[in-house]
């Protein structure tokens, strides 16, 4: 699976959010999009999965324009894990994850569907909540259920919008490691919007740093996470040291522009 994001631009009204964003994902790994608030990270993710229609530009999946696919076809190839999920009518965790099988499934869930649901629930460590109501769980558990649902889709591209924002440190690490592992194991292109610089630097195979509606820097953690880049994009003075071969960002102070 190859994904090419070609020159995407997007406006909210007259405000330009994205300008000619262009990147390719051509190997199954964990790619993180970082950047300051309002830079268009989530908008970009939504343009990629067609929740928003870009003003111009297109997204190609293995050479096929996603615009020419039905939503169902797209859902077979591309999963999406939203950042927040509001309360709904009571649904068990199993039923919620089972929804991930909808693009591929029939009217009633097959044993295989249930097997996949069970596997993903196990992977996410949600066994003890399987029959509980989704609404009764904590925000962190909600996020894990959402990730499980995305995985149950068995997509080739998985897009996540800040999947670790409600998780504690341990669960953040678990989820990041898991996503990186799964991307290799199941050959999934994982594209993730992320906020935490250090978590990103530690686990991302590739980082796309955005600034001002465009790609500012694109490469490995070492290439992107530099004091200079962070200064230019976030306006924050930092010291970047190396820990276990990965850059680690120490925050110093903001810079008055």
């Amino acid at each position: 699976m190859l994904m090419n994001v070609e020159e995407i631009s997007f406006n909210y009204g007259t405000t330009e959010i994205l300008r000619n964003v262009k990147f390719d994902l051509n190997e199954p790994n964990l790619t993180c999009i970082i950047g300051p608030n309002g830079v268009g990270k989530t908008t970009l993710a939504r343009c990629v999965n067609r929740l928003l229609r870009p003003k111009c530009g297109k997204v190609m999946l293995s050479g096929v324009d996603t615009k020419d696919m039905t939503l169902r076809e797209l859902a077979i190839h591309m999963g999406y894990v939203p950042n927040v999920s509001g309360d709904t009518f009571p649904m068990s965790v199993v039923d919620t994850v089972l929804m991930g099988r909808h693009p591929r499934g029939g009217w009633t869930p097959s044993d295989r569907d249930l097997q996949i649901v069970e596997d993903t629930i196990k992977i996410m460590g949600l066994e003890e909540y399987a029959m509980r109501d989704f609404n009764e769980l904590s925000a962190g558990q909600h996020q894990k259920v959402m990730i499980a649902r995305g995985l149950a889709q068995e997509p080739e591209v998985l897009i996540l919008d800040e999947p670790t924002s409600n998780l504690d440190v341990r669960h953040q690490i678990e989820v990041m490691e898991l996503l990186r592992e799964l991307s290799r194991e199941k050959k999934i292109l994982v594209l993730m919007v992320c906020h935490d610089l250090n978590i990103t630097a530690r686990y991302a195979d590739r980082i796309i740093m955005m600034s001002d509606g465009g790609v500012f820097s694109d490469g490995t953690a070492k290439e992107v996470m530099t004091e200079e880049n962070i200064m230019k994009v976030y306006g924050v003075r930092t010291k970047v040291i190396e820990v276990e071969g990965r850059p680690h960002v120490i925050l110093l102070s903001t810079v008055i522009k």
């Binding site: 709904t88 929804m99 991930g100 889709q153």
Partner: peptide, 23 residues
Amino acid sequence: QYLANQLNIMSIGDESAKCLGVN
């Protein structure tokens, strides 16, 4: 009744529903 699955998916929100292939 035939649409039951899609109604389930609609009840979890428009964004999620679209990403699960429901128009």
